[in-house]
């Protein structure tokens, strides 16, 4: 292990922050972890852009143009990129909209629900533009490791990070691997 702390960044794309919560669930081990790693951009630190990092943990799938910008920034800056959680790996629950026509989604959200934007579809460039379908992140950038689960158990996070820190190929025990 190098004397420099390992730099880790995390983000949530089309996800629910559940994976982040689970990461925090490693409880008191988090303090041990903080001895070894420093967090770059994460929803936990408020750093807005990802700088050069050793490990990037990405939660959530890709459902709009902004997700792609963030994901590409992560890929560019992280030596190792990990897809974390069902949404990042299969599209997850957000992908349930993949069988619904995008037109119908918009109608349901903006035109049937009276009041919102006065029944009009907003066209503000600030709003991320959605894709036809939600995709897992490995269909957009190259991913090095996967951590399945919805969310992945805290133990699985711990195993992945400690394996990476120790230069081992990450390997989960049977009980740590699940898709739900």
């Amino acid at each position: 292990m190098s004397d420099r702390k390992i730099r880790v960044a995390t983000c949530s794309l089309a996800g629910c922050f559940g994976c982040h919560m689970s990461l925090l669930d490693i409880d008191e081990r988090l303090f041990g972890l903080l001895e070894l790693v420093e967090f770059n951009r994460t929803p936990l630190t408020d750093i807005k852009h990802c700088g050069p990092c050793d490990v990037g943990l990405v939660e959530g799938g890709v459902c709009n143009a902004e997700n792609v910008h963030v994901l590409k920034e992560f890929r560019k800056n992280c030596k190792i990129l990990v897809a974390v959680g069902a949404c990042a790996i299969t599209g997850g629950l957000p992908a349930m909209r993949n069988n619904i026509d995008l037109w119908d989604c918009f109608q349901e959200v903006y035109q049937y629900e009276g009041g919102l934007e006065g029944g009009k579809v907003p066209n503000d460039p600030e709003l991320p533009l959605p894709f036809d379908k939600v995709h897992p992140i490995y269909e957009v950038v190259k991913i090095d490791y996967f951590l399945p689960g919805c969310p992945p158990p805290a133990d699985a996070f711990w195993r992945l990070l400690t394996d990476l820190l120790n230069g081992r190929e990450p390997k989960l025990d049977y009980e740590m691997l699940h898709y739900d």
Binding site: T90, A95, K133, H135, E139, F146, L177
Partner: peptide, 17 residues
């Protein structure tokens, strides 16, 4: 899939209707 250690579906999704 658990038994075979499947970490991701690997292939691109078809998302069929």
């Amino acid at each position: 899939a658990y038994y075979l250690g499947m970490m991701s579906p690997h292939y691109n999704h078809f998302y069929p209707a």
